[in-house]
Lab assay of single mutants.
Amino acid sequence: MTTFKLIINGKTLKGEITIEAVDAAEKEKIFKQYANDNGIDGEWTYDDATKTFTVTE
């Protein structure tokens, strides 16, 4: 398992979430669903070196 981080830079929601997953593709799906469930629609980036997804509205 690898630890992945999501950084949220939303208009109404900001924060960080850290979760373990098998791979980045699995985690991306979970993070995007979390963002969608919380009304966050923005630009996504991924840094493989730090295993960090960022979504910015």
Rank of each mutant, 00 (worst) to 15 (best):
Lys11Asn: 12
Asn36Glu: 12
Gly42Val: 10
Val55Tyr: 08
Thr52Phe: 03
Leu13Ser: 10
Asn38Gln: 10
Lys14Gln: 12
Asp48Trp: 05
Phe53Lys: 00
Phe4Gly: 03
Lys27Met: 15
Tyr34Trp: 15
Ala24Asn: 14
Ile8His: 02
Asn9His: 05
Asp37Pro: 03
Lys51Asp: 08
Leu6Val: 13
Asn38Tyr: 12
Gln33Met: 08
Lys11Ala: 12
Asp41Trp: 14
Ile30Met: 06
Trp44Arg: 01
Leu13His: 12
Ala21Tyr: 10
Lys11Val: 15
Asn9Phe: 12
Thr12Lys: 07
Glu43Gly: 03
Lys14Arg: 10
Thr18Leu: 10
Phe53Cys: 13
Thr45Leu: 04
Lys14Asn: 11
Ile7Lys: 03
Gly10Pro: 01
Ile30His: 05
Ile19Thr: 02
Lys14Tyr: 14
Lys11Met: 13
Asn36Trp: 13
Met1Gln: 06
Lys27Tyr: 15
Asp23Met: 07
Met1Gly: 07
Ile19Gly: 10
Leu13Phe: 15
Gly39Asn: 08
Glu20Tyr: 14
Thr52Lys: 01
Thr2Lys: 06
Thr3Gly: 04
Thr3Cys: 15
Val22Gly: 07
Ile40Asp: 01
Ile7Gln: 03
Thr50Lys: 02
Thr18Lys: 06
Thr50Met: 02
Phe31Asp: 01
Asn9Ser: 05
Thr56Trp: 11
Tyr46Cys: 10
Thr54Arg: 04
Ile8Pro: 00
Leu13Asp: 08
Glu57Phe: 14
Thr50Ile: 03
Gly42Phe: 08
Thr54Asp: 02
Thr12Gly: 10
Lys27Gln: 15
Asn38Thr: 05
Glu43Gln: 07
Tyr34Ala: 03
Ile7Gly: 00
Thr56Asn: 05
Thr56Glu: 05
Phe4Gln: 02
Ala21Glu: 04
Tyr34Gly: 00
Thr45Val: 10
Asn36Met: 12
Leu6Cys: 14
Val55Leu: 13
Ile40Lys: 01
Leu6Arg: 00
Lys32Pro: 01
Gly15Ile: 15
Ala35Lys: 02
Thr18Pro: 02
Glu26Ala: 07
Ile40Val: 07
Ile19Glu: 03
Gly39Val: 04
Asp23Lys: 05
Asp48Tyr: 06
Thr2Leu: 12
Gly10Phe: 15
Thr18Ile: 10
Gln33Phe: 06
Thr18Asn: 06
Glu57Gln: 08
Met1Pro: 08
Glu26Arg: 04
Gly42Pro: 02
Asp41Pro: 04
Thr12Trp: 12
Lys11Glu: 12
Lys14Pro: 09
Thr18Phe: 13
Ile19Asn: 02
Tyr46Asp: 00
Trp44Ser: 00
Gly15His: 13
Ala49Thr: 09
Lys11Ile: 15
Ile17Val: 06
Phe4Trp: 06
Leu13Lys: 05
Lys29Met: 09
Tyr34Arg: 00
Lys32Ile: 10
Ile40Phe: 10
Glu16Asp: 04
Lys5Ala: 03
Thr12Pro: 08
Thr45Glu: 08
Glu57Ile: 14
Thr50Arg: 04
Lys11Leu: 14
Val22Pro: 10
Ala49Asp: 10
Lys5Leu: 11
Ile17Asn: 00
Asn36Asp: 10
Asn38Arg: 14
Asp23Cys: 12
Glu28Ala: 07
Glu28Lys: 04
Gln33Glu: 05
Thr2Ser: 10
Glu26His: 09
Thr56Gln: 07
Glu16Leu: 06
Gln33Asp: 07
Thr54Gln: 03
Asn38Val: 11
Ala25Val: 11
Phe31Ser: 00
Thr50Asn: 06
Ile7Thr: 02
Leu13Trp: 15
Lys29His: 09
Glu16Arg: 04
Thr3Met: 08
Asn38Lys: 08
Gly39Ser: 05
Trp44Tyr: 03
Ala49Tyr: 06
Trp44Cys: 06
Lys27Ile: 15
Gly10Asp: 01
Glu57Asn: 11
Gln33Cys: 13
Ile30Val: 10
Ile8Tyr: 10
Thr54Pro: 00
Met1Asn: 10
Ile30Thr: 03
Lys29Asp: 09
Thr54Phe: 09
Thr2Arg: 04
Phe31Ile: 11
Lys5Cys: 14
Val22Lys: 10
Ile17His: 04
Glu28Trp: 15
Phe31Gly: 01
Gly10Cys: 15
Asp37Tyr: 08
Lys29Gly: 07
Tyr34Ile: 14
Gly15Trp: 15
Asp48Asn: 05
Asp48Pro: 08
Gln33Val: 05
Val55Ala: 03
Ile40Gln: 00
Val55Met: 07
Ala24Cys: 15
Val22His: 10
Lys29Ile: 12
Tyr34Leu: 11
Glu26Gly: 12
Lys5Val: 13
Asp41Cys: 14
Thr18Tyr: 14
Thr45Phe: 08
Ala25Leu: 10
Trp44Leu: 04
Gly42His: 04
Asp48Met: 03
Gly10Arg: 02
Ile30Gln: 05
Lys14Leu: 13
Ile19Leu: 09
Thr12Asp: 12
Thr52Arg: 01
Ile7Ser: 00
Asp48Ala: 08
Glu57Met: 13
Tyr34Phe: 12
Asp37Ala: 11
Ala35Asp: 01
Glu28Tyr: 13
Thr12Ser: 07
Phe53Leu: 06
Lys51Leu: 07
Tyr34Ser: 01
Asn9Ala: 04
Tyr34Met: 10
Tyr46Ile: 01
Lys27Val: 15
Thr50Phe: 02
Asn36Arg: 14
Met1His: 08
Thr18Glu: 06
Lys11Asp: 10
Ile8Cys: 15
Ala21Ile: 14
Glu16Tyr: 09
Val55Asn: 03
Ala35Trp: 07
Phe53Val: 06
Asp41Gln: 13
Thr56His: 09
Leu6Glu: 02
Thr3Ala: 05
Leu13Thr: 11
Glu20His: 11
Phe53Asp: 02
Asn36Gln: 13
Tyr34Cys: 13
Thr45Lys: 06
Glu28Cys: 15
Ile40Asn: 01
Ala25Tyr: 10
Thr56Phe: 11
Ala24Thr: 11
Val22Arg: 10
Ile17Thr: 03
Glu16Met: 08
Thr50Leu: 05
Asn38Glu: 04
Thr52Ser: 03
Glu20Gly: 07
Asp37Gln: 07
Ala25Gln: 11
Gly15Arg: 14
Glu20Thr: 12
Ala49Trp: 04
Glu28Gln: 05
Thr52Gln: 02
Thr56Arg: 03
Asn9Arg: 07
Asp48Gly: 04
Gly15Val: 15
